[in-house]
């Protein structure tokens, strides 16, 4: 997906012309997206436990993460390399592409009543759902957490706490202000939603 194609679309649309480039666009984006599937999964099910689900994730959030990988605000050997070759329009297009996919079910076990209760109390104290919204569904630049890969959640929250993930100091502060045992409860609860 390039700026050129986009602006052509714009011009075509503005003239009221019927767009025929739909198929061309799709091929381009699917080609780009194919690279991602190698790790994030053919059907959206990540190939390993520390790779996040990106199918059905929030569009704005996906874009911002790609942007942050590219500019180095979020560091990850794999993703920084991949993002470094992407232009803003590619990132936006990829974000839109993956956001439109259905969120896959990883069939992670539901949390026990005790863990669920601990997660609810921790949420009551910090107000996670004040941003991640009811049932942790996310919106805009705030990611969906419900049903995310358990080990990835654990890794990234630990990274927020240690500063290893430094692209959102707000989340770092909130993760640091939450005890490790509360975070563990939240991770189990969220994965099993």
């Amino acid at each position: 997906m390039s700026l050129k194609i986009l602006s052509k679309m714009l011009i075509a649309a503005a003239c009221g012309a019927i767009l025929t480039s739909g198929a061309v666009r799709a091929d381009t984006i699917e080609e780009k997206a194919a690279v991602c599937s190698g790790c994030h999964g053919e059907k959206g099910v990540p190939v390993n436990a520390v790779t996040p689900i990106i199918w059905g994730q929030m569009e704005g959030y996906l874009y911002l993460e790609l942007r942050d990988f590219k500019k180095g605000a979020r560091k990850n050997e794999i993703m920084s390399g991949i993002a470094s070759s992407l232009e803003r329009d590619d990132m936006l297009a990829l974000a839109a592409y993956f956001a439109a996919k259905p969120w896959p079910n990883l069939n992670q076990p539901s949390a026990s009543d005790a863990v669920t209760k601990q997660a609810a109390t921790a949420n009551g104290s910090i107000g996670c759902t004040g941003c991640h919204l009811d049932k942790y569904q996310g919106t805009g630049s705030v990611p969906r957490l419900a049903g995310q890969n358990h080990d990835y959640l654990a890794k990234t929250l630990a990274d927020f706490r240690s500063g290893e993930r430094g692209n959102n100091p707000g989340m770092s502060s909130l993760a640091s202000a939450t005890s490790e045992s509360d975070l563990a409860a939240l991770e189990t609860y969220l994965a099993g939603m």
Partner: peptide
């Protein structure tokens, strides 16, 4: 609670919790 961090260009910046 206070926790210091640099300006994150449009990201959530609470300086603590």
């Amino acid at each position: 609670q206070v926790q210091s961090s640099a300006y994150p260009s449009g990201k959530l910046w609470l300086g603590g919790a």
